[in-house]
């Protein structure tokens, strides 16, 4: 079994803008890695290629199964009229019970009242936690998270990070973040995208 997700000579342009130019990178599997760097350096583009959402112009990625990825997108991408439990249950209905989903949501600070509301009525921080639990509970080999902790205050962020680490179950986790403290809290390997 591969120890790394191998990215070889990966390039991607949008119109005239070259976002990734011959990128070579090895990402340790079954570990937590943080991709860090300023905006516009191609972090989101890279993970979108890894997830198969966009195609690279050239190059290849080996060692990742695009059919087994749980995601926390940069935008929440929740089904707005459904409540938190149903948003998670709809992607995990074979593997998770509603009771387990509720207990996870409770653990991250969403009370009964919050859980029953359509997610469109939840605060940004609550919505983010719903997204994170949705990805954690999804049965997959890799979890990709694009700025997953934005909108969370420091104490809540700590709690969410601990929950993520405790429920990793040996999976590869790739987190895009601007915050070095988050990377430290996650005890993650840092991949620097600063050019």
């Amino acid at each position: 079994m591969d120890k790394y997700i191998e990215i070889k000579n990966l390039s991607k342009s949008f119109d005239e803008t070259k976002v990734l130019i011959n990128l070579n990178l090895n990402i340790k599997k079954n570990c937590i890695s943080c991709i860090m760097g300023p905006s516009g350096t191609g972090k989101t583009t890279l993970v979108n290629i890894m997830m198969g959402l966009i195609e690279a112009d050239s190059g290849e990625i080996n060692g990742i199964n695009p059919n087994s990825i749980g995601v926390v997108f940069q935008e929440d991408r929740l089904i707005e009229h459904l409540n938190a439990v149903e948003n998670i249950y709809v992607v995990n209905n074979k593997t998770q019970s509603r009771e387990n989903i509720i207990s996870q949501l409770n653990f991250l600070g969403l009370n009964k009242e919050d859980i029953e509301k359509p997610v469109k009525n939840l605060s940004g921080g609550m919505r983010r936690r719903v997204c994170i639990i949705r990805a954690i509970l999804f049965e997959c080999e890799t979890i990709i998270m694009d700025e997953p902790f934005k909108g969370l205050d420091d104490s809540l962020k700590k709690k969410v990070i601990n929950h993520l680490v405790n429920n990793r179950k040996g999976r590869t986790i790739l987190v895009i973040t601007h915050d070095l403290n988050e990377a430290k809290e996650l005890n993650a390997e840092i991949i620097d995208f600063t050019r």
């Binding site: 959402l53 059919n67 995601v71 997108f73 991408r77 949705r134 999804f138």
Partner: peptide, 24 residues
């Protein structure tokens, strides 16, 4: 479209995509 992309990534069943995303 982004919601449909999410549904694809999380392998949401077709019937649920119709019921919970398309119909609303």
């Amino acid at each position: 479209a982004k919601l449909l992309e999410m549904a694809r990534m999380f392998k949401i069943k077709k019937i649920n995509i119709i019921n919970k995303i398309y119909i609303p």
